[in-house]
Simulated scan of single mutants.
Amino acid sequence: MHWIDPESLPVVKGAHERFVLNPHGEVDGFVMRAADEDVLVHTPPHMEAELTRHIKPGDVIGVHGVKPRGSALLAAVAVTPANGRRILDHGPDHDREHPKHDHHEIATEGTVRLSLFGPKGELRGALLTDGTVVRIGPKEAADVADLLAPGARLAVRGDGIETRFGRVIHAREAGKGLKSLAPLKHGKPGLKHEHGPKHEHGHKPKPKHKHKHNHA
Results as ranks from 00 to 15, higher is better:
K188H: 11
H215G: 04
F19I: 05
V133Q: 10
W3N: 14
G158V: 08
K188I: 14
G91Y: 10
L178H: 02
H90F: 15
T129N: 13
L148T: 06
K188D: 12
I55Q: 00
A72N: 07
G190S: 09
H103L: 12
L127M: 08
R113Y: 00
A141P: 09
A171V: 01
L127G: 11
H195I: 05
D143Q: 11
F165T: 11
K210V: 09
V79W: 15
G187V: 05
L147K: 07
H209L: 14
P10I: 04
L184V: 12
D93N: 15
D89L: 06
S8W: 05
G65V: 08
F117S: 04
F117N: 01
V66L: 10
A78E: 14
D38P: 03
H170L: 12
M47F: 12
K192E: 09
H213A: 00
E162S: 15
E140T: 14
E122T: 05
P57N: 13
P183C: 09
P99N: 01
E194Q: 12
D28H: 10
V168K: 13
L51N: 08
T163N: 11
T52K: 07
A126P: 13
V144T: 05
K208M: 11
G137I: 10
I161R: 03
G137A: 11
E122S: 02
G25V: 01
D95E: 04
D5H: 10
G131Q: 11
V39F: 05
L154I: 04
A149N: 06
L178T: 12
E122F: 00
K185E: 13
G70D: 14
R53H: 09
D59Y: 04
G118W: 08
E173C: 12
F165Y: 15
V133G: 13
V112Y: 13
I4L: 13
P207M: 12
R18Q: 08
P189L: 09
G91I: 02
I106Y: 06
H42I: 07
V144I: 13
T129Y: 02
E173L: 14
G158N: 11
H94D: 10
H186R: 06
P183W: 08
A216I: 00
I87Y: 00
L123M: 14
H54W: 02
V77N: 03
P197G: 14
R157W: 07
A216T: 14
R124Y: 00
A145Q: 14
G110R: 02
A82S: 13
V66Y: 07
